[in-house]
């Protein structure tokens, strides 16, 4: 069993306003956990801290009670806007293979066609790009996925497809998923349990 733990996390973008105050949080890799909060409540900030994109915080992020080592981060973040986290001058094949080279079977499970590998990010739709962005994060070394509003901009049909592929994969390979969203109906449907960021946040 792998555990992801955040201890006494505090952070503010300026010293007057603390966004996060002494947050304690634990999850293990068997869980699909929901994190709910209003806009501006610090959900995305917390995601960036868990995945190492913000490093000037107080407190500790621990994987199996050890701090995160340099190199590939086993806690991977997936964003709301896949087009913003891909090099526009690389083709999709290079973008995916920078992380790993999934088998044909896995590509099929994610609805990715090999012919898209020669295309550039601007030549794919939002749903197609998000599939790449998810599969790129699912490197075999990944233990936890932090999914920050990853289907907010997609239509309901694509939303189901994306969650179906991601959650099946996560269950099969024991990857813990933190689903961050302000859509309570979605969280009720796909997560084992949902926590409120405001409940963790000591103001």
């Amino acid at each position: 069993m792998e555990t992801l733990k955040a201890e006494h996390i505090s952070f503010g973008y300026n010293s007057k306003n603390m966004v996060l105050n002494d947050i304690n949080f634990t999850m293990d890799n068997s869980m699909i956990l929901g994190l709910f909060g209003d806009s501006g409540s610090g959900k995305s900030t917390f995601c960036k801290i868990l995945t190492g994109f913000i490093d000037s915080y107080k407190g500790n992020v621990l994987l199996n009670n050890k701090s995160i080592e340099n190199g590939f981060n086993p806690i991977q973040l997936i964003y709301q806007h896949p087009e913003k986290i891909m090099n526009p001058r690389w083709n999709m094949g290079d973008i995916l293979k920078e992380s790993w080279n999934p088998s044909e079977k896995i590509l099929n499970e994610f609805g990715i066609k090999r012919e898209w590998f020669n295309r550039y990010p601007s030549e794919l739709s939002g749903g197609e790009l998000q599939r790449f962005s998810i599969l790129r994060a699912l490197n075999p070394k990944t233990k936890f996925i932090i999914a920050d509003e990853i289907t907010t901009m997609l239509d309901a049909v694509t939303q189901v497809q994306i969650w179906d592929s991601l959650l099946k994969y996560a269950k099969k390979y024991n990857i813990g998923v933190l689903v961050v969203s302000h859509d309570d109906k979605l969280l009720n449907k796909i997560t084992d349990r949902t926590i409120l960021l405001d409940d963790l946040n000591k103001q």
Partner: peptide
């Protein structure tokens, strides 16, 4: 939350 296969192209 029913799954429909296929995808919306670009």
């Amino acid at each position: 939350f029913k799954l429909t296969n296929g995808h919306q192209p670009s």
